[in-house]
Design a binder for these strands. Structure first.
Lengths: 109, 109
DNA sequence: TGTTTATATGGTTATATTGCCAAATAACCA
DNA sequence: TGGTTATTTGGCAATATAACCATATAAACA
């Protein structure tokens, strides 16, 4: 595979990977409505604060979110709303998949 | 987190995860132009055929690709072109990120 | 039937990811 | 200054992923 092409796909994969976790998708979804501090997200998610912080660092590292410290809290924001477009498509995949699965029941080995 | 919401994000994460590898992104990109058999993809990618086959099984499993056996070969096709929309956004993230990184050089600790 | 070719699967090893706890850092306030 | 709260970081154990080799399956054809 061509070197430049490979670099492009590596960069893309990094971002897809950053989104590839239920907790991080929840965070992105939540941030699409409002900025949120870590403690709010931690409360909503119900995991250890350090776990949430690490998920946020993955999103930060991929360039998907921004943050701003105000007082004791760190507020995170979505940097690109277009990330959300992805999910429209994903929903298509999931729904069609569910439909086909129903029509296929009993046909699979 | 709500149970249904969690299930939704798990389903979405499965698809994002399936896309989160350079080789699989290459495959999706290639299939967006044309159907391809495993041997063609293997040739282009330059990895072991078993490795490519496993990547394809990940994409199959996530519902992203379809396949059809003809003779000795198995031809894979993209099931949803909308998956490609994602990459427009990803490119935005990557490019803006590169720009900002340049303007930040020397400012990072 | 036996051989060849294309794919898929099982097994193994190396590496990466996840989640928690404990400890460090940083801002605020008494 | 010392204490409190919010967040991040380091470390560790459990689990998942990726790549290869060897093997199994399946179609084509002599």
């Amino acid at each position: 595979m061509d070197k430049d092409l490979l670099a492009k796909f590596k960069a893309q994969a990094k971002i897809a990977k950053a989104l590839a976790h239920p907790t991080r998708l929840f965070i992105v979804d939540e941030l699409s409505r409002n900025e949120r501090c870590v403690c709010e997200l931690t409360e909503m998610i119900g995991a250890d604060a350090s776990t949430v912080s690490k998920h946020l660092s993955v999103l930060r590292n991929a360039g998907i979110v921004n943050y701003e410290k105000r007082g004791l809290s760190v507020y995170y924001r979505l940097r690109f709303r277009c990330v959300l477009n992805f999910f429209g498509c994903i929903e298509t995949v999931i729904k069609l998949d569910a439909k086909e699965r129903i029509s296929i029941i009993g046909k699979e080995k």
